[in-house]
Nucleic acid binder design. Structure first.
Length: 295
DNA sequence: AAATACAGCAACCGCAATCGA
DNA sequence: GTCGATTGCGGTTGCTGTATT
């Protein structure tokens, strides 16, 4: 039994595309437009699976693609976005015109992940590269922050099919994937495609993430005023609220801060990994590790 | 020069989301 | 509302070129 293959495999070509195949595909799509990938190969005279055609078009043949090396600016953008979004390559790619998710994923795996690894190692050569969790140490800063009104960045990912952190049975979200790299097929969750499994677990009230640009003003213990623009990811899941942002915005240090947003006051203890879960209904809010306090 | 190791990247695979009858 | 078909995404594989021994 098992699943039906996405396309007949017998007689279909695999592996690298030839210039001739590229030409056929390009000409067909230019004449007929994208879509109908299943029937496209037959109509275009290609001995390829529709999926393969789609991938080839999206990643290499589209005219709006930017070729060449990733620039330092793009490099920085990828790093920042990855801090907040994790391995959500298509969303990251959406912020880099002309770049594809596959390209960014490959670039991350072959360049940036190593770069981050070596940087972390350099910073704390005797310690694990996995960010430690726990209470702030004596290097923490205490700052007073005022968050200005948020402006929501219109983002196509809200319309896309991106999953957000799963919720546990008590509706408290599981910890965000630490570096979001592995997915074991041996410990699969029930298929969420649940007419094949009761479509959509409706005990979860999670919403699509919002990417927001926030302007913060800080006053440090030393009286220094700091202004900062950050991109943060806001995810709501039932009464739980998730927020994260690039730690580089805060010099990778622990912080305590009081905040004010739209007339609401609160307090936070934030670790350098720069994300937290908070409970909108509870006075004793905690993040995924029980470190967070906010009201 | 040959063998081996490594890095980079194109392509594949399976799962989940979405579409549409 | 249900369910099969289609599309999109992210993890992984494996080929190819280059560096090292």
């Amino acid at each position: 039994m098992g699943r039906t293959p996405c396309c007949e495999k017998e007689g279909l070509r695999r592996g690298r595309w030839t210039a001739e195949e590229d030409d056929k595909l390009k000409k067909y799509i230019e004449a007929n437009g994208e879509g109908s990938w299943r029937s496209l190969p037959k109509n275009a005279g290609l001995l390829r699976c529709g999926k393969s055609c789609r991938l080839r078009w999206i990643n290499y043949l589209r005219t709006d693609l930017k070729r060449g090396n990733i620039t330092p600016q793009e490099d920085e953008t990828i790093l920042k976005l990855h801090t907040t979004l994790g391995n959500r390559w298509s969303i990251i790619a959406g912020h880099l015109p002309g770049r594809t998710d596959n390209e960014i994923k490959n670039y991350w795996n072959s360049h940036l992940s190593k770069k981050i690894y070596s940087d972390t190692k350099k910073d704390s050569p005797q310690e694990s590269t996995i960010p430690k969790r726990g209470r702030p140490n004596n290097k923490q800063q205490t700052i007073i922050a005022k968050k200005n009104k948020k402006k929501t960045i219109p983002n196509e990912e809200s319309c896309q099919s991106n999953s957000i952190p799963e919720t546990t049975t008590n509706n408290k979200p599981k910890e965000q994937e630490e570096h979001a790299t592995t997915s074991s097929s041996s410990e699969k969750e029930p298929n969420r495609n649940d007419h094949n499994n009761k479509k959509n677990n409706n005990n979860s009230t999670t919403k699509d993430p919002k990417i927001e640009e926030e302007h913060w003003e800080f006053t440090t213990d030393d009286g220094e005023k700091v202004e900062n623009e950050v991109i943060s990811t806001i995810i709501e899941s039932g009464e739980w609220f998730y927020s994260s942002w690039p730690s580089s915005n805060f010099n990778n240090e622990w912080m305590n801060w009081d905040w004010e947003s739209d007339g609401v006051l609160g307090q936070n203890v934030q670790e350098p990994s720069s994300w937290f879960w908070a409970n909108n209904n509870d006075d004793n809010n905690t993040n995924g590790e029980g470190e967070e306090e906010c009201r």
